[in-house]
Amino acid sequence: MSTYGTPGAGPRPGVTVHDPTTLPSDDNVDPYTFCVELAGSRWFLQKGKMIAYYGTIDFNGVGHGRLDRIVRTSFHSPLHASDWVVAEGTGRMLLADRAFDVNSYDLEEGNLTIRSGNLLAFQPSLSLKQSIVPGFLTLIGTGKFVAVSNGPVVFMEPPLRVDPQALVGWADCPSPCHHYDHGYMTGVLGGLRALTGLGGASGEEHQFEFVGAGTVLLQSSESLMPEQATGVTPQQAGVPGGGGSGAHGQGTGAPRLPGQLGDLQRRFGL
């Protein structure tokens, strides 16, 4: 019945026109758009990322009473409920986020940790937990999820040192540790910057260091996508960012973001 398309009119030749029969199922339409097929199934998505859909699909805020059970099994992170919706129904829906690159990942009894702002959608068969690294979320189990990145994701293997702002996430390898370039910090200019506060911090002074076996995901970004609230961490001694009695003098200050130098200068005696 789709008779529209007079020869010579419409989009130029070579441009693909999609309909529900040609849209891919749980795959990319192009590098920036992902198509999810729903057949009575459900997906979790970040709010505001659905751009169009065919079929009959309901969107419910996480926390909607009827969804208590699924939320209980999939969300182990005290995520702010209003940031996520559950899509359920039958049809095909397109997901996209500010024209960033979109990629899907399949986990099989695996785990992957990702920057919270980069996670777009995931299947309820995966469970979502807060990473021990502030601002990151860990997905565990078997299933598919969709993540965005500024430019295509670059996959690297450890050993590797990464500018915190370029880090999208990592899989299978142990959590990263901080690495400070002592030479850069203590050089004349580094010292000058530490004294005057001019110039701020950049990836050349401080990196995340990855060792061991696994995969590290990178993007070209120094300007981060806004972070999604990962929720508060329990106020408990020994929990990073928890602000418990174990925290060393950070008091009630704002949680330090990865990439900030914080009390580094003091540690180097600058």
Binding site: M1, S2, Y4, P11, V15, T16, V17, H18, D19, P20, V29, D30, T33, M50, I51, A52, Y53, Y54, L94
Partner: peptide
């Protein structure tokens, strides 16, 4: 992305 609308496939867009 170009999406075709036909009588059996209505479309909803943000």
């Amino acid at each position: 992305v170009l999406l075709r609308v036909s009588p059996q496939y209505p479309l909803t867009v943000d």
